[in-house]
Amino acid sequence: MPEILTYAFMQRAFLAGLLVGLLAPALGTFLVLRRLSLVADSLSHVALMGVALGFLLKTLPSLVALVTTTAAAVAIERLRATGRLSGDIALALFLYSSLGVAVILIGLAGGFNVDLFTYLFGSITTVGRGDLLLMGVLAVVVLGVVLYYYAELVQTTFDPDLARVSGVPVDRVNIILALLTGATVTMSMRVVGVLLVGALTVIPVLASLQLASGFRATLLLSMAFGVLSVLVGLVVAFYWDLPAGGAVVMVSLAILMAAAAAARGALRLRRRTTAADHALSEQTTDA
């Protein structure tokens, strides 16, 4: 067994990373195409507000954070879907207003003795057994729902009006995606950190969009890129003694650049082939 896998914390890091590598791009494919790329960032600030509220009310901070983030995800979706605000404006509005409320709540309580951030921002190298189990359950639920509502999610992402006329329950599907996003972001950021969840929601999807043709292929390739980023990133971090989250993000960025270069290369090759075919047919005609 390679040295890296002899450590229990690294085994858990690989498993948690694998799950986030699958989950984040699976939802991210739909979110990016709906122009909600920064949803993880916005929801992380809503979670901060939720945890602060939980401390103030002396209730379970994690649970309050989960409730506030899923409610915010649904509200963002409603604002976007009804056309009252565009996706990026809705995200910015929730980011800053929840941050403002969080600052006030923390001020009201005169600061907290407990480290607020342990409830919010985890690290992939400090994943516990319980967290891993939680992530596993979340992954089964999210991937199961995405599979079950695949056709509906694709249709509502493509064009909500067309989807509605096809009989798709558009509002229900949008709310389901918002709930899954809220739950995934809150729970994953506590386990592996918001940097990793946010980055893996967007970057592998962008890489996949460079190469894949077809929605299903894009979804699967983005998940493959997500998993590859985590696996390579963790190995790099372990042997070069780098922060794991940062290393994973850098690897995903390298994949995106390689994919973009490959897409450009393929386009140039296609143009050259077409030009050569054209020249050949002209020569044949002349002869």
């Binding site: 195409l33 509502y149 056709a151 694709v154 493509f158 064009d159 096809s166 009989g167 894949a212």
Partner: peptide
């Protein structure tokens, strides 16, 4: 107004959307 030009769906996939018959695991 129909769609985002970045949308990765192919012509075949888009047309098959018209045959939608409700949620199902098999749709994937």
């Amino acid at each position: 107004a129909a769609f985002d030009v970045q949308f990765p769906g192919t012509v075949g996939e888009i047309v098959s959307q018209g045959l939608y018959r409700g949620p199902s695991v098999s749709s994937f």
